[in-house]
Design a binder for these strands. Structure first.
Length: 326
DNA sequence: AAAGTGCCCAACCGCGTATGA
DNA sequence: CTCATACGCGGTTGGGCACTT
C-alpha cells in the first residue's frame, strides 16, 4: 500500500521560497487570517502544498518571529525544558534508578513498573519541541529542534557528509550531559529507547530494571487536591505483612505521583494555577508536573487525566486494569 | 586559489490526531 | 459510527556556505 501524500508532488512546487512567494503568502494571511492552508495555497495563487504554506508562515513569515542567535538565557531555558520534557525516555533514567535504589524492590516492584508504564504512557503522548518553543517567545519548534540537534551533534548527517566524521575534527560546541546538566565534551547520554525499536516503552523499562517476582495488591486512586487544583495519583500497597525494606529508612508502603498545574514562567517553572482557568488559557498553556522522586515530567495538557480522575477503574482497581498497563 | 569537508537550518516527509460531513 | 480531509508534530533531508587542507 502506498503512503499517503500531503499533496500532488507532480504539480506542487517544492524547494526554497522566493521573496515574491513570501509576500503573497504574508499578504494573504494578513488579510484572511491563519488556517485552511490547503485553500490558502489555491486562493493566494501559490503553487505550493498547504503544509508548506503553513510551515513557511509559522517558521519564517509570522511577524512575531524572533531573529538572531539563541541567547545564553534562552539556551539555559531550552536545556532545562528539554531535561524536563525529554527525548522520549532517555533523560530521566539516572533519576529514576537513583530513586529505585533507595526503595525495597520486593515491596514495590509492581508499583514502580506501573509508574514507569504510566510515565511511558505519558511520554508517548506528549509533544516536546512545540512545548519548549511555547516558552520561548518568538522561537519556533523547528528552530529549537535544529538548535538542540546541532548542539548535541545528532544532526542531520546526510549521506554525503556521513562518510567520515573523524577527519578534520569539527568545531565543537559546548555540550552537556542531558541528565546531570554538567557541561562536557563529548556528551554521554543515558540509555535511549529508540522510537523505531520493536520494544515498547514498558518493555524497555522492564528490561532495564530487574525486579523480583511477586504480587503486590494495591489500591489506586486519584484525587483533586484541597488547597490547589492539583491532582494526586497514588498507588497504596494494601498487602499485609509487607516484605522487609532494604534498609531502615526505605520502608515504603505507598507511592504516589503528584500532578500540579503550573503556569508558564520564563524565570522558573513554578507556581500554582487553577486548573480550569489555566486549562482554557492557550496563552499560558499549563503543564503538569509529575514528581517522581527527583524526576520531573511535564505534560502539555490535562484532559485525558481529568477523564481518568472520574473513571471508576481508578478506585480500588488492580494495576493491570490501568490504561497504561499492557 | 581550488577542492574537500562538515555545519546550519529551511524545507520536506510521514504519521497520528482532530474535526466535520 | 465511518470516512475524508486538514492540521500539527517530530524526524529527516539536502542546498548553501564557512572553514580547512
Amino acid at each position: 500500500m502506498g503512503r499517503r501524500l500531503c499533496c500532488d508532488k507532480e504539480e506542487v512546487k517544492k524547494r526554497a521560497w522566493s521573496a515574491e512567494e513570501d509576500l503573497i503568502l504574508t499578504d494573504y494571511v494578513k488579510a484572511h487570517g491563519e488556517g485552511r492552508w490547503e485553500s490558502v495555497s489555491k486562493k493566494a495563487g501559490l503553487n505550493r502544498c498547504g503544509k508548506s504554506c503553513r510551515l513557511r508562515w509559522l517558521n519564517y513569515l509570522r511577524p512575531d518571529i524572533k531573529r538572531g542567535n539563541i541567547s545564553p538565557e534562552e539556551e539555559e531555558l531550552i536545556f532545562r525544558l528539554h531535561r524536563l520534557l525529554g527525548n522520549r525516555l532517555n533523560i530521566n533514567f539516572p533519576s529514576i534508578t537513583s530513586f529505585l535504589s533507595r526503595i525495597s524492590r520486593d515491596l514495590v516492584h509492581r508499583l514502580v513498573i506501573s509508574h514507569l508504564r504510566f510515565i511511558s504512557w505519558i511520554y508517548i503522548r506528549m509533544c516536546r519541541w512545540s512545548l519548549i518553543a511555547g516558552r520561548l517567545p518568538g522561537r519556533t519548534a523547528n528552530e529549537i529542534k535544529n538548535y538542540w540537534n546541532t548542539l548535541h551533534g545528532k544532526s542531520s548527517r546526510t549521506s554525503k557528509n556521513k562518510k567520515d566524521l573523524s577527519r578534520n575534527s569539527p568545531k565543537k560546541k559546548m555540550q552537556r550531559d542531558v541528565s546531570t546538566g554538567v557541561l562536557q565534551n563529548p556528551v554521554q547520554l543515558s540509555p535511549v529507547w529508540e522510537k523505531d525499536t520493536s520494544v515498547s516503552p514498558a518493555e524497555f523499562w522492564a528490561s532495564m530494571l530487574k525486579f523480583s517476582e511477586g504480587d503486590i495488591k494495591a489500591r489506586v486512586s486519584i484525587q483533586q487536591g484541597e488547597l490547589h487544583d492539583n491532582y494526586c495519583f497514588s498507588i497504596d500497597c494494601v498487602e499485609s505483612g509487607s516484605p522487609p525494606p532494604v534498609n531502615s529508612d526505605t520502608n515504603i508502603t505507598s507511592t504516589s505521583i503528584e500532578m500540579e498545574n503550573h503556569q508558564s514562567n520564563t524565570e522558573s517553572l513554578s507556581g500554582f494555577g487553577h486548573g480550569e482557568d489555566v486549562r482554557e488559557d492557550d496563552a499560558d498553556d499549563p503543564v503538569m508536573n509529575f514528581d517522581f522522586g527527583d524526576c520531573d515530567v511535564f505534560l502539555p495538557s490535562l484532559p485525558s487525566l481529568a477523564d481518568l480522575m472520574n473513571s471508576d477503574i481508578l478506585v480500588g482497581s488492580n494495576l493491570s486494569s490501568l490504561p497504561w498497563s499492557d
